[in-house]
Design a protein around this nucleic acid. Structure first.
Length: 423
RNA sequence: GUGGCUAUGGUGUAAUGGCAGCACUAGAGUCUGUGGAACUCUCGGUAAGGGUUCAAAUCCCUUUAGCCACCCCA
């Protein structure tokens, strides 16, 4: 009987944890700079929150939810994405009466029940930034800028921002109608999936990857031409801001995205590495002006996005980025003999208090193997405490480079080490 | 949910159907008073179950898992 991780779920081992740590740190410093406060919501929420928030017509809700029933009979779901939980917290804690914009960020695990493949897991980490209360497009631009900065800081030099506007409840229904009537004419040319999409979610036909569908789509009416005046202005201004920020955006009239709550701006950020196979978005997001109200709050415009941590880490690794892991110890403390071993334990503590990182192998008796371990660790200075030194309250400081050594009193040890380390 | 490929110690790899081997790693020792090394020894494997065969890591079936693709998305 062997136990193992569930499909699509992974242990994060120490050498990988450094990458998560790095992403988290970059997020944290960006959040600090842009004035976002961290929020962590529970991993379990009422199933209805996602059915309503993320949207019943999305794949995420109707076939990818990890749902369960509690002993008390409640229907709960492991959060498949962050936004509904954040909106719930925003309403629940009265953040509606905070000065606007209210800016929140998060970093944590999410769950989707799907078949794993490149860059897709059943448990995965996302970081997200959400801004509530301001409908102006400068917010959209700042969110995009923020995510672009984070990726740049993580070493991505060649990024593209795909962007589009999908209108709002004022103009999208009209567009949908004209799109459907156009697509109907080519119904039998479209792939099977698109024929289904045509009925269920016609906008999704736009980003089908099949060549035959693409040909049809190229002649289709574009949503940008059907935007109402407000949406059009919003989008136009956003593009101007992006120009001003010199962000490398690419207007993609077929970008739709699979979540129901988006209004106006939608965007995704890709790495341009000509990687074999399919490109996965590193970051995706947009504006959701109706979601807060939909979930029972006041009418509050909002905008946000999320980044996929594993996808980012996978690419960092593919680029050969190596994170060094632990910091190197400054000294190694070796001991010979029973008395010395006892004393060494307290000297170790003394070094810790003095903030000198020290490695040791107290479980070893042979000086030889201790030195060889110090050498493997690449430590420059070894402190040697033997029977003689222990009795005299002294200690040997040995420079592994060149092999010189000198004996000093334990009292002066810290001072001596610090002097040497400065050089 | 559908399809393709794959599965040998912790890792990386060998083995026409015929003794499961090598390298790295790890542990012990030579070695409780001076390192980089060497030598000796040790731990550890055919994913699970079934079938064909005198004989299976190898062929067949089932399961499980991994990777990849579709769907969809971070």
């Amino acid at each position: 009987m062997k136990f193992q991780t569930q499909i699509g779920m992974h242990d994060i081992l120490p050498e990988d944890e450094f990458y998560y740590q790095k992403v988290l740190e970059v997020c944290r410093s960006a959040a600090d700079f842009y004035g976002f406060g961290r929020i962590e919501t529970p991993i379990l929420e009422e199933t209805q929150l996602f059915e309503k928030g993320t949207g019943g017509s999305t794949d995420i809700v109707h076939k990818q939810m990890f749902s369960l029933r509690t002993l008390g009979g409640d229907h709960l779901t492991l959060r498949p994405e962050g936004t509904p939980g954040i909106v719930r917290a925003y309403i629940q804690h009265g953040m509606q009466s905070l000065p606007k914009p209210v800016k929140l960020w998060y970093f944590g695990p999410f769950f989707r029940y799907e078949r794993p493949q490149a860059g897709r897991y059943r448990q995965f980490y996302q970081f997200g930034f959400e801004s509530f209360g301001i409908g102006k497009s400068v917010i959209d631009a700042q969110i995009i800028q923020l995510f672009y900065d984070i990726l740049k800081e993580l070493g991505f030099k060649n990024l593209t921002i795909e962007i589009n506007s999908i209108g709002d409840s004022c103009c999208r229904p009209y567009y949908k109608k004209s799109l459907v009537s156009y697509l109907r004419k080519y119904q039998n040319v479209l792939c099977k999936d698109c024929q289904r999409r045509l009925r269920e979610n016609p906008l999704r036909v736009l980003d089908c990857k099949q060549e035959k569908c693409q040909r049809v789509v190229r002649g289709a009416p574009q949503i940008i031409d059907s935007l109402c005046q407000e949406c059009h202005d919003h989008f136009q201004k956003l593009l101007e801001f992006l120009e001003a920020l010199e962000l490398p955006y690419h207007l993609n009239p077929y970008l739709v995205r699979g979540l129901d709550y988006y209004t106006r701006t939608v965007f995704e950020i890709y790495d341009n590495k000509k990687n074999e196979g399919s490109r996965v978005a590193l970051v995706g997001g947009g504006r959701y002006d109706k979601l807060v109200q939909l979930l029972g709050g006041k009418n509050t415009p909002a905008c946000g996005a999320a980044g996929g941590v594993e996808r980012i880490i996978d690419l960092m690794k593919a680029k050969g980025e190596k994170l060094n892991g632990f910091s190197k110890p400054a000294v190694f403390l070796a001991q010979v003999g029973k008395l010395a071993k006892r004393k060494a334990l307290s000297i170790f503590e003394k070094l810790r208090e003095s903030n000198i990182k020290v490695a040791e192998a107290f479980y070893k008796d042979s000086l030889l193997s201790q030195l060889s371990q110090a050498n493997r660790l690449g430590v420059r200075y070894v402190l040697i405490l033997g029977q003689k030194e222990a009795l005299e309250n002294k200690i040997i400081i040995k420079d592994m480079k060149g092999g010189h050594q000198k004996t000093v009193s334990v009292k002066k040890m810290v001072q001596e080490i610090k002097k040497k380390l400065k050089k």
